[in-house]
Design a protein around this nucleic acid. Structure first.
Lengths: 256, 256
DNA sequence: CCGACTTTGTGCATTCGTTCACAAACAACG
DNA sequence: CGTTGTTTGTGAACGAATGCACAAAGTCGG
């Protein structure tokens, strides 16, 4: 239903595919879709585009112009075009982008055409939220195991898998060739879990614990801090109030 | 409270305070600690510094050099110094920064010297995780209410407050002069909750639902997407694997 | 009181990211 | 087949952020 219908309107797809620009190094080309560094800022936005594209596809939209997609993703249209241009030339001038095709290209660029096995350590509220999170389970990732140190929760089922004890970490990583680990434990336990992950061979770690992890060279750590964004929000709110009142905040909320 | 003792070692504090650079517009000065725009990138890092500072303070550290603090926060020391210099000149050359004093200054810059009342909508796993999250409750924020549409969870206690029905949203916002709202509901319900928050007078919204919210001018929305970081991680993991195998990206490997 | 030493704060160069504005490319239509 | 209209892809100007490297400013020991 989505956008599989609309075969006649997409001559460029077969063309682009037939052109052989898919995998092989395109000689004479400015190698746009292949071995270009791909700016970090662009990488950070691709997931947003991807989500917007999925939404459009579900709604049955077959083709989308950069203006519309940009609006749906909440960015400038010029920025969107430049971002996508780094992946390659996948649009049709005068028409726009084919939604399904772009979904595929963005997914491929992000490395989501395969399903990455993920292990989550920590089955507290956050770990449970992650395991049940749509964006995790759906495209690109497969939760191989959820681990916890608390014997209380071991054995329960969360997000389709049964919680195992954290002592199984090395075993799980080895068995499933897990490269991505998610840390959703309290800050006090995070570094230890991290060390064990690294020792077991995990090379990419997503850290939700509020502390800076120390890892050896070659291991990629990204952190999501639930409170940092809130603090940034507070900063802007304060500034807005200060402007309005002409004073430091305090009149509005502090007295209550 | 840890390093509150150390009165003799801080001659500069009284000096800085006495200098009157605290609140009033300092004439002739380049107004460093006052009405300077304060770069967005700096704002985003201040919470990280603040956390590192709290950790140091708990450990009883009274003074810290930019190198150490930078290491604890995971950034370059030059960057740290430049960031802090935007707040004012709060270090002592040859010594470093007083931890407690810097905690206060960073908190003040972020607007966290007061406790912002926050309302959380959505008492699922994520909402519960947020309500129990240390960084939320501790300094700077006070969870005024947790709301949910599910009658099942209404009445339960989460993070020190009793869950109320989402229909009380307007009432809660008005009563508590709430300026910050957190959305932790499924994507399908998020825009509706957002609209009601805005209508009730909330001007800062932290969105955990995986969609782009539409808000009128003057409302500040920030989003935390739990899966975006994971996807960025996947990208780098893919690139690393591809390099190792000598597949797709050839330029990166060739450059090294 | 002075000289050696340490660490901050910042001017400057460079890199990275954003935005504008427009030519090239394509579809649509007569 | 040519003309018109639309939208992409990108060169170029601009702005923001990073990192270097060093002078200024302070401490500390004698």
């Amino acid at each position: 239903m989505s956008s599989a219908a609309e075969p006649s309107g997409l001559p460029h797809i077969s063309q682009a595919n037939a052109a052989g620009a898919e995998e092989a190094t395109d000689p004479g080309e400015a190698r746009p879709g292949n071995g270009r560094p791909l700016p970090e800022a662009t990488i950070a936005r691709l997931p947003v585009y991807l989500r917007a594209l999925y939404t459009l596809a579900e709604r049955g939209v077959g083709t989308v112009a950069s203006d519309e997609l940009a609006a749906a993703a909440g960015v400038n249209s010029a920025k969107l075009r430049k971002d996508l241009s780094h992946l390659g030339s996948y649009g049709i001038r005068g028409v726009g982008y084919d939604v399904d095709y772009l979904v595929y290209q963005v997914s491929r660029a992000l490395g989501l055409t395969q399903k990455w096995p993920v292990v989550i350590v920590g089955a507290g509220n956050l770990g449970r939220a992650l395991a049940n999170y749509g964006g995790f389970v759906s495209r690109g990732f497969r939760i191989l195991a959820v681990l916890d140190a608390n014997a209380e929760v071991v054995g329960r089922e969360i997000g389709g898998v049964t919680v195992r004890h954290v002592s199984d970490l090395e075993e799980v990583v080895a068995e499933g060739s897990v490269a991505i680990g998610v840390i959703a434990v309290p800050a006090s336990a995070a570094q230890a879990v991290c060390d064990r992950m690294v020792a077991a061979g995990v090379t990419s770690i997503l850290n939700f614990a509020p502390l800076v992890l120390t890892v050896p060279e070659g291991v990629d750590v990204r952190k999501v801090d639930l409170s940092i964004e809130l603090q940034i929000l507070a900063f802007h709110a304060q500034r807005r109030f200060a402007e309005r009142v002409g004073q430091v905040p305090g009149s509005a909320a502090a007295e209550v």
